[in-house]
Design a protein around this nucleic acid. Structure first.
Length: 932
DNA sequence: GACATCACG
DNA sequence: GACGTACGTGATGTCC
C-alpha cells in the first residue's frame, strides 16, 4: 500500500532505547570474537528486530514503521527542572560503544531510524502518533513505557513486545485508574521516582486516580483543593501545587516536536539482503546471520573463526612490533585518527609528561590506540637535539603539531560522552589533561579492572600486567631517560625512540582492556568496579588537586627544636655508651648494648644483627638509661626527618599546599594508600608528634573539619560475625571495650577499671587481626598462657567470632579468595601454603573482609560526597581510612557536618543493610590537631 | 636494593 | 611437637 498516510495505514513506532536496555540486560556481556568489542546489546537488539520483522505478517501488519531513539542527555525538560532524571545511573561503559551500532543495525534492517537532538524518543513518538491519528490511520507503539500511555486511544494502542500484550484504553485504565486523557494528571500527582518527577509527596497512583476521578481533572482539583476532607491530603495539595504543575509539564509529552520528515517517509521497506547480511557478518553474529539468510532466501555469509583478513592475524595473536607504530606529525594524520576513534567508540590513551608528579608535570605527547598493534604517538613539545644541547635548547623538534592545535582537535573527543577513554592509571592522565582545562570522560582503567579482579594475586602496574597476561615485556623507560644526575625528561627523548615507547603503552593498555573487560562480568566484580573503583577516580583527582595547606614556618621551627633536643640526647647517649657512635644505626646500637655493655636479652634476627626495636628497648629501659634516651632520640629523629623536614619539601611552590597522591589499587583490601607524601600516617598518638598536625591549617576565613567513623571495623565485625551482644552495645551507644571486658571478666560496667578495659580493647583489635595467643601476649606483655586464656574466654562468650574465623578460613581455602559485604574479592593464594606462611594467609583472610568492608563504606561515602556538598563553600581534602578531612568557609561548618555525616553514616545503603548503625564524630578547628 | 624501624588506621 | 605469628600501609636511614 502506498500514497499519503491515512485511512487503512498502520504505523508502528518502536521505542529504540527500551529495546537496547532490554537487550543489554537480557544477554551476558558478549564480545566480538575478533577484537573483543562489547556486542551483547547489539546482538539482542538485532534478535529483537528480526523477531519483530518475522512476526509482521497478516492483515494487521504495519504499512509504516520507525525505530525512535533518544538523543543527547539534555532536553527541554532539564531546562524546566534541573533534577529531571538526575538520579539515573550512568550508562554502563560496555554499553556505550554499542549505542551507535544499534542505529547502524536499524538501518541495516532497512527500517527508518529517527532521533532528534534535545528531544526524548517519547516526544517524537507522541508527535508521530498524533499525526497518524489525525490522518485517520492506526498507530501501534511498541514499548511498555507508562509515559506513553497518555497517547492511547482513537486508533493508537501500545504493544508490549516481550509479553506480546497490547494495551488499549481499558488497559490504561487498569494501570492508572483513569483513561488516557487523564493519565498526565495522575502522573503529575503520583510523581515518578525513576525519572525524578517530584509529584505530590505521599500521593501514589491509587490516591491520584481517586482524586482525579472525583474532581474531573487536575486544574479543577487544585482549584478546589480546600474542599478535600482528609486534612493531610488537602495540605499536601495546597502546599505543593506549583510542584504538581511542574510535574505535569514534565510528564506531558510534546506532540509538536519539529520533525524534518513525514509519515510517508516511514513506509515499510524490504531489507536489502546484502546490506543486512553484511552488517550481521561484520558483527560476527553466526546464528542470526543464518536465520536471516534463510528468511530472505539467500546464502548465509561465511564468518570465519579468525574473521580478520588473511594478512592480519587474529587480534589475540598480533605480535608487538614497535616499528609499526605511527608518528603523528600533522593535523591530517591526527584527524584520521580521531575519525577512527569515532568509528570504534573507544580509544586507549596514554600521556607522556616531564615528570611523575602530576601537579607539576607538563604534557609532552599523547599516544592513542584503537586496535591491537596499531598505535600512534603524537609528540607535542619535544625539544630539538641541536649543537647547543648542552645549554638546553628550547627549539622544538621537527614533526610536531603545535600543542594548541593538537589539543583543539583532541579535546572534543576526550570530552565526548560517547567515546570511552581507556587508560592505565587514568587518574594520572586525567589530571594532566585537567591542568589544560580538559575533562576526560568517560573513562575505563585497566589498572582498576585488574584490581577489581585480581586483588591479592599480583600488582597492577602495566609492566606486571603485560608480562603476566601478554607475555610481553614493555620497552623500559630507564635507557631512554637515563638515571641519576644525567637523567633527562621525556621531552628530550629523540622522537623515534619516543614513538616506540609511548605508542606501545597505549597498545598494551588497549589489549589489556580487551582482555579484562569481558572477564569482569564472569568474575562477578562488575558492581565493584563500577561503584567502588571507577567513580572514585575523579573524586581522588579533585582531592589531590586541592591539597592541604601546610605552614612551613611551623614545621621549620619544630625542626630546629627537634634538632637541638636530639643533639642534647646524643651527648648523653655517648656518655652512657662510653664512646661516640651512629645512634641511627641499629647495628652499632646493638653491639653497644649487648656486646660492649653486655645487657641481657640480646636476640639476633635472621640477618645476624641484634634486634633493637622499640619493644626491646622499652624492656631494657628498666635496667639502664641508655635505651630510654635512644627511644627519645628515635622519636625525634622520626618526627624530624619524615615529617617536619620532608613535609616542607612537599609544599607545592605554586599552591603553597601539599598534594598527596592516593593509590587506588595499592592495598589488597580495598584501602587507599597515600604517597608522596604519605598523609595517612601523620603523628597523633604521642603528644609531641601530634603537634605536627598544628602545621596542617585552614586558609584565612576557613576552618578544617574532620569526620571520622567511630569503631567502624568492630561494628562491621559485629555485623559479619553476627554477635548479638556487640550489636546491641553499638545500638545503645555503650563503650564497646568496656562491654567486652564486662562480658569476659564479669566486671559490672560501672566498676570497670581502665586496665581491664585496656586488655579488652587489645583483644577486640586482636580479633580483627586474626588473633593468636602469642600476639596478644606480646601486645599486652603478659604470659602466653594467660593471653590464651583470655582468647578462650572471648570465644566462649562470643562464639560467633570463632565461627566467623573458621568459616572465613574454609571459604578462602575453597575459593582462593574472601569477600567484603560489597562483593570486593581479596585473593588469598597462600592460604594452603605449608609452614608459617599459612598462618599469615589465614590471619590476612580473617582481617580482609572486615578491613575491606570498612574501606568500601568510606569509598562509597567519598563517591557520593561531591554531590552531597555541592554548592557549599567546602572542599574534601584528605582520607585517612576512617576519616575525611574538609576545608570549609567559616559559618558553613555546621551545614557541611550535617551533609557529610549523613552521607558517611548512610554510605552502606542501599546495597548492604548493616545490623549496626554507623556513627561519625566531627571536629572543627583552625588546624588538624584542633579539628581531630 | 634489602633490612630495620616506626608513623598511621 | 616445632615453627613462627597479630591486619593493612609508606618513608627514612643504614649498610652492603
Amino acid at each position: 500500500m502506498s500514497g499519503t498516510f491515512g485511512k487503512g495505514h498502520h504505523l508502528h513506532l518502536i521505542d529504540g532505547s527500551a529495546f537496547i536496555f532490554r537487550a543489554y540486560h537480557a544477554l551476558p556481556p558478549l564480545t566480538r570474537k575478533s577484537d573483543g568489542l562489547p556486542i551483547g546489546a547489539v546482538a539482542g537488539f538485532c534478535n529483537m528486530l528480526q523477531r519483530y520483522v518475522e512476526g509482521n505478517t497478516g492483515p494487521d501488519a504495519p504499512t509504516h514503521v520507525a525505530v525512535i531513539f533518544d538523543k543527547g542527555s539534555h532536553t527541554f525538560r532539564n531546562d524546566m527542572y534541573d533534577k529531571y532524571k538526575a538520579n539515573r545511573e550512568a550508562m554502563p561503559e560496555d554499553l556505550r560503544p554499542q549505542i551507535p551500532l544499534t542505529r547502524t543495525a536499524t538501518e541495516a534492517f532497512n527500517i527508518a531510524c529517527k532521533e532528534k537532538q534535545g528531544y526524548e524518543a517519547d516526544d517524537i513518538i507522541a508527535t508521530l502518533a498524533v499525526q497518524a491519528r489525525a490522518a485517520g490511520g492506526r498507530c501501534t507503539i511498541i514499548s511498555s513505557d507508562k509515559d506513553l500511555m497518555q497517547l492511547v486511544g482513537g486508533g493508537v494502542e501500545m504493544l508490549d513486545a516481550m509479553k506480546n500484550k497490547s494495551i488499549d484504553r481499558d488497559g490504561v485504565f487498569e494501570k492508572f485508574g483513569v483513561f488516557p486523557d487523564r493519565v498526565v494528571d495522575v502522573q503529575a500527582l503520583a510523581g515518578d521516582s525513576v525519572d525524578n518527577v517530584p509529584g505530590a509527596p505521599g500521593i501514589g497512583i491509587k490516591t491520584a486516580a481517586l482524586l482525579i476521578n472525583e474532581y474531573g481533572d487536575l486544574d479543577t482539583l487544585l482549584e478546589r483543593a480546600g474542599e478535600i476532607k482528609q486534612p493531610k491530603r488537602r495540605q499536601t495539595l495546597i502546599d505543593h501545587a506549583d510542584q504538581i504543575r511542574l510535574s505535569r509539564d514534565l510528564v506531558q509529552l510534546d506532540e509538536n516536536t519539529p520533525l524534518d520528515f513525514t509519515l510517508d517517509d516511514l513506509e515499510v521497506r524490504d531489507p536489502d539482503a546484502e546490506q543486512l547480511l553484511g552488517f550481521l557478518a561484520e558483527m560476527e553474529f553466526r546464528t542470526l546471520s543464518k536465520r536471516v539468510a534463510e528468511v530472505l532466501g539467500k546464502e548465509a555469509p561465511t564468518i570465519a573463526d579468525a574473521p580478520v583478513p588473511a594478512d592480519a592475524p587474529a587480534a589475540a595473536d598480533v605480535p608487538f612490533d614497535a616499528d609499526l607504530y605511527e608518528h603523528v606529525s600533522d593535523t591530517e594524520a591526527l584527524q584520521a585518527w580521531i575519525e577512527r576513534i569515532y568509528e570504534f567508540g573507544y580509544v586507549a590513551v596514554d600521556t607522556e609528561t616531564t615528570g611523575l608528579d602530576d601537579m607539576v608535570a607538563q604534557l609532552v605527547g599523547v599516544s592513542l590506540c584503537v586496535e591491537p598493534g596499531k598505535a600512534c604517538y603524537i609528540p607535542l613539545i619535544h625539544k630539538a637535539r641541536g649543537s647547543d644541547d648542552l645549554f638546553g635548547s628550547d627549539d622544538l623538534a621537527e614533526g610536531q603539531i603545535p600543542l594548541e592545535e593538537a589539543l583543539r582537535l583532541l579535546t572534543p573527543m576526550l570530552q565526548d560522552p560517547a567515546i570511552l577513554k581507556i587508560g592505565q592509571n587514568m587518574k594520572y592522565d586525567s589530571k594532566i589533561f585537567g591542568q589544560l582545562g580538559i575533562n576526560v570522560a568517560p573513562i575505563d582503567d585497566t589498572m582498576l579492572l585488574s584490581y577489581a579482579m585480581h586483588a591479592g594475586l599480583h600488582g597492577h602496574g602495566m609492566d606486571t600486567l603485560s608480562e603476566r597476561y601478554q607475555s610481553h615485556t614493555p620497552i623500559p623507560i630507564k635507557p631512554l631517560l637515563g638515571s641519576g644526575k644525567s637523567a633527562i625528561t621525556f621531552d628530550k627523548v629523540p622522537l623515534a625512540d619516543a614513538v616506540k615507547y609511548a605508542a606501545e603503552d597505549a597498545d598494551i593498555t588497549l589489549r589489556l582492556w580487551q582482555l579484562f573487560k569481558p572477564q569482569l562480568h564472569r568474575v562477578e566484580v562488575t558492581k565493584v568496579y563500577e561503584t567502588l573503583e571507577r567513580p572514585l577516580v575523579p573524586v581522588l583527582a579533585a582531592m589531590e588537586r586541592s591539597g592541604v595547606k601546610v605552614d612551613r614556618d611551623t614545621l621549620s621551627r619544630m625542626s630546629n627544636a627537634f634538632a637541638q633536643k636530639m643533639a642534647g640526647l646524643e651527648d648523653e647517649i655517648y656518655q652512657l655508651a662510653g664512646r661516640k657512635f651512629n645512634v641511627g644505626s641499629p647495628k652499632q646500637l646493638g653491639e653497644i648494648l649487648f656486646d660492649e655493655m653486655a645487657l641481657e636479652g640480646g636476640k639476633k634476627g635472621k640477618t645476624g644483627a641484634y634486634a633493637t626495636g622499640a619493644d626491646v628497648l622499652e624492656d631494657l629501659a628498666t635496667e639502664h638509661d641508655l635505651p630510654a634516651r635512644v627511644l627519645d632520640w628515635r622519636q625525634l629523629s622520626k618526627l624530624k626527618s619524615t615529617y617536619t623536614d620532608a613535609l616542607q619539601d612537599h609544599i607545592n611552590p605554586d599552591t603553597g599546599r601539599v598534594h598527596t597522591s592516593y593509590s587506588i589499587a595499592g592495598a589488597s583490601t580495598g584501602r587507599l594508600a597515600s604517597t608522596d607524601p604519605n598523609l595517612q600516617n601523620i603523628p597523633i598518638r604521642s603528644e609531641e608528634g601530634r603537634r605536627i598536625r598544628e602545621a596542617f591549617v585552614a586558609e584565612p576565613g576557613k576552618v578544617l573539619v574532620a569526620l571520622d567513623y567511630s569503631q567502624i571495623e568492630l561494628r562491621i565485625l559485629a555485623h559479619i560475625a553476627n554477635i548479638p551482644e556487640l550489636k546491641q552495645a553499638f545500638q545503645d551507644g555503650i563503650d564497646i571495650h568496656a562491654l567486652t571486658a564486662s562480658e569476659m571478666f564479669g566486671v559490672p560496667l560501672d566498676e570497670m577499671t581502665s586496665d581491664v578495659r585496656r586488655q579488652a580493647k587489645a583483644i577486640n583489635f586482636g580479633v580483627i587481626y586474626g588473633i593468636s595467643g602469642f600476639g596478644l601476649a606480646r601486645n599486652l606483655r603478659i604470659p602466653r598462657a594467660e593471653a590464651q586464656g583470655f582468647i578462650d574466654r572471648y570465644f566462649e562468650r562470643f562464639p560467633g567470632i570463632r565461627t566467623y574465623m573458621n568459616d572465613t578460613k574454609a571459604f578462602a581455602k575453597e575459593h582462593g579468595f574472601v569477600q567484603t559485604l560489597f562483593g570486593r574479592k581479596i585473593h588469598t593464594p597462600e592460604i594452603s601454603a605449608k609452614g608459617p606462611r599459612a598462618g599469615f594467609a589465614q590471619r590476612a583472610a580473617i582481617n580482609a573482609p572486615i578491613q575491606g568492608t570498612a574501606a568500601d563504606v568510606i569509598r562509597r561515602a567519598m563517591i557520593r560526597m561531591p554531590d552531597a556538598i555541592k554548592g557549599m563553600p567546602a572542599t574534601m581534602l584528605l582520607q585517612v581510612h576512617d576519616e575525611l578531612l574538609f576545608e570549609v568557609e567559616k559559618g558553613a561548618e555546621d551545614a557541611l557536618i550535617d551533609a557529610a555525616r549523613h552521607v558517611m553514616e548512610n554510605a552502606a545503603d542501599p546495597v548492604v543493610k548493616l545490623d549496626v548503625k554507623l556513627t561519625v564524630d566531627a571536629g572543627i578547628g583552625s588546624n588538624w590537631a584542633e579539628a581531630h
